[in-house]
């Protein structure tokens, strides 16, 4: 799908700030509010804008239990459906937060979130490794998130400029 210049701009702006008021967004791209809303709707309908979400730093929340693991999965692709079938079997689990097909030494990169390491270990042992086409798994637990989807969690580059200058 090719997007128009305005659609691309809208996507770029919303990807950084999905909560921007439509009236402000419309001004930024030099369109009327109605035109902007129509483009957004069309982007949503085409599933180009898939969802509007908030990026949460759970690590800051006391009492939050959560562990994230990245799992390298080697699989045997199936004739006719390639990797898609096994990928679907895996991504339908709600524990799976992301899944990518990779080039290189393994095939699928799976991100899993659970409450504890145990929970994740159990999921890998019981659900993932037991799938017919899965050949092997390597699990890496994430120790600390510094940056996610282009956003630095503890941004230190604040505005340090003097208030009035020539």
């Amino acid at each position: 799908m090719t997007l128009s210049e305005k659609e691309l701009e809208i996507v770029e702006i919303l990807e950084k700030d999905a909560r921007i008021p439509t009236a402000d967004l419309a001004k930024m791209v030099n369109l009327s509010v109605e035109e902007t809303e129509a483009l957004m709707k069309s982007l949503e309908e085409r599933n180009i804008i898939v969802q509007y979400t908030a990026l949460v730093d759970w690590a800051k929340i006391d009492g939050h239990q959560g562990v994230t693991a990245m799992i390298e999965v080697k699989v045997t692709p199936k004739r006719g459906v390639g990797f898609d079938e096994v990928a679907e079997r895996i991504y339908r689990f709600k524990e799976v937060k992301s899944l990518y097909l990779m080039s290189g030494t393994y095939d699928l990169a799976v991100t899993i979130e659970g409450k504890t390491m145990n929970e994740i270990a159990k999921f890998v042992a019981e659900k993932l490794s037991t799938l017919d086409s899965v050949v092997s798994t390597t699990t890496h637990f994430i120790m600390k998130k510094y940056k996610h989807d282009g956003t630095i969690f503890d941004q230190t580059d604040g505005d340090k400029r003097i208030v009035v200058s020539p």
């Binding site: 505005d159 400029r161 003097i162 208030v163 009035v164 200058s165 020539p166």
Partner: peptide, 8 residues
């Protein structure tokens, strides 16, 4: 401040 003459 909208008084700043430099990039943000």
């Amino acid at each position: 401040s909208l008084g700043v003459g430099e990039p943000d």
